[in-house]
Simulated scan of single mutants.
Amino acid sequence: MSDDTVSVELPRTLVFSPRANDTSHVLASVAQRRGLFTEHLTGWRVPEGFLVGGPAHLYAGPLFADAVAADLGIALLEPPDDWLTRLPYAALRRGIRMLTMAEAWTLRTPAFLKPPNDKSFPARVYLDGTQLPGPDAVDSDTPVLVSDPVTFTVEFRLYVLDGEIVTGAQYAIEGDLDIEPLDGHESEQRVLGFAKDVLREAVDTLPSAVVMDVGLIDGEPTVVEANAAWASGHYAADPERVLDVVLRAAGPSAEAGERDRQFLRPAAERVD
């Protein structure tokens, strides 16, 4: 009798938070059709004895991802906090700088304020820094992106893998949710051409799997922001391609490429 054993590779598992949304439902269906396991956790801890098939991937919001990623052995890719501030004015069509929350509290003129890679406070135009949440709600060293207020007439979400745009969708008109496929859109070529030019110059400053939003200001395309694909809504983008990007953006730590290690989301301090 031979002592040789045959190693069987188990299917990968895509893990979701307890809070389901349209994108998690769509990604679960696509993942199952591909032969992946899917698991929806029921709490903010990975249960003792929790079993996944093979290596785990994740689709979830930032706070939940911080709570479970380490226990699942998942590396989370995200754009640098100051990524927008590195782009030329021609790509932004507005002034953008990064401050700490303590500095933002001292602002006395209107500005669009947002946390770069989480939802520690609502992203919107504030009349001044006194309207921001106080130190009882947000740490004083929290990074804050400060932008000149502008109006995007139309906004689009683009999924990027290895520097290439693989799918996208319109998601807003005049700031209101309005979902349409990018494929066949009247602005498709203008948006894609602009985004490809931006990525050609900035690809080394972004992780290999990421979401980039583009908006129109007076008919001209501009970068809105870049976001972590593992926490972004897909809107009307191709779910198959969206899943490709999500699996890369939140996958096994051991599989994160050397290039992507500079884009790993810092591990959250765990509180038991």
Rank of each mutant, 00 (worst) to 15 (best):
T5W: 02
S7P: 04
L10D: 01
R12E: 13
T13C: 14
T13F: 05
L14Q: 05
F16E: 11
F16R: 04
P18F: 04
P18K: 11
P18M: 06
A20I: 04
N21C: 14
T23D: 10
S24C: 09
S24P: 07
V26C: 09
L27G: 10
S29Y: 02
S29G: 07
S29K: 14
R34N: 04
R34E: 05
L36H: 10
F37R: 13
E39L: 13
H40E: 09
L41H: 12
G43Y: 04
G43D: 07
W44V: 09
F50K: 15
L51G: 01
V52D: 01
V52T: 15
G53Y: 01
G54P: 00
P55A: 14
G61L: 08
G61Y: 04
L63T: 13
F64Y: 13
A67E: 09
A67F: 06
V68N: 11
A69N: 07
A69G: 10
A70D: 14
A75R: 13
L76W: 09
E78Y: 00
D82L: 08
D82I: 05
A90S: 02
R97T: 14
M98V: 03
L99W: 04
L99D: 02
E103S: 08
W105R: 15
K114T: 05
P115Y: 01
P116G: 03
P116A: 04
D118S: 14
D118H: 09
F121S: 06
P122M: 06
A123C: 06
R124L: 08
R124W: 10
V125Y: 15
L127Q: 11
L127Y: 11
D128E: 05
G129R: 10
A137F: 14
D141H: 04
D148C: 09
F156G: 05
F156R: 14
L158C: 13
V160N: 09
D162V: 00
E164I: 03
I165L: 13
I165D: 12
T167R: 11
A169H: 06
Y171G: 03
I173T: 13
E174D: 13
E174H: 15
D176V: 06
E180T: 11
L182M: 12
D183C: 05
H185R: 11
H185S: 10
E186I: 10
E186W: 07
G193T: 15
A195D: 07
D197T: 15
R200Y: 09
P207W: 05
V211P: 01
V211Q: 00
M212G: 03
G215N: 05
L216V: 14
I217G: 01
I217S: 01
T222L: 05
V223P: 08
E225M: 08
E225Q: 12
A228Y: 02
A229E: 04
A229S: 12
E240I: 03
D244R: 01
L247T: 00
R248Y: 00
A250D: 03
P252D: 02
G257Y: 00
G257L: 00
R259N: 00
Q262G: 10
A267K: 06
A267M: 10
A268N: 04
A268E: 13
